[in-house]
């Protein structure tokens, strides 16, 4: 029942964390857009953009969605999900790109 007995102090501590995360997210948004205007070569741009997006996503998942204070099982389920997600993302890699977009005779 600990879940329902959060003290007001704990909650206000949470609130301070939320505001810090909010600040971090705004800074990271500015960084993403700023880096775009530098017009890096494509590989660099993709790497930077995805790393920043992943950090932002992790912040949202860990703090706003409280994933950081959850317990075992859900991590396993999400890990399974992440694994199949990666399998899905392998689709483009394993596809023969000569065959995409054109009719082969």
């Amino acid at each position: 029942m600990s879940h329902h007995e959060m003290t007001a102090e704990e909650v206000s501590h949470h609130v301070r964390t939320y505001l810090k995360v909010f600040g971090a997210l705004l800074v990271l948004t500015v960084i993403t857009v700023g880096v775009f205007y530098l017009h890096l070569p494509i590989v660099g741009a993709v790497v930077v953009a995805l790393i920043v997006a992943s950090i932002k996503g992790s912040l949202v998942a860990c703090y706003f969605m409280h994933l950081i204070s959850e317990r075992g099982l859900i991590y396993w389920i999400l890990a399974l999900c992440a694994l199949f997600f990666v399998v899905l993302l392998l689709l483009p890699v394993i596809t023969d790109h000569e065959a995409v977009g054109t009719v082969t005779h």
């Binding site: 899905l88 993302l89 689709l91 483009p92 596809t95 790109h97 065959a99 995409v100 977009g101």
Partner: peptide, 10 residues
């Protein structure tokens, strides 16, 4: 994934 596949093969 579809986006990446279509873009790489565009």
């Amino acid at each position: 994934s579809s986006y990446v596949l279509l873009r790489m093969g565009a």
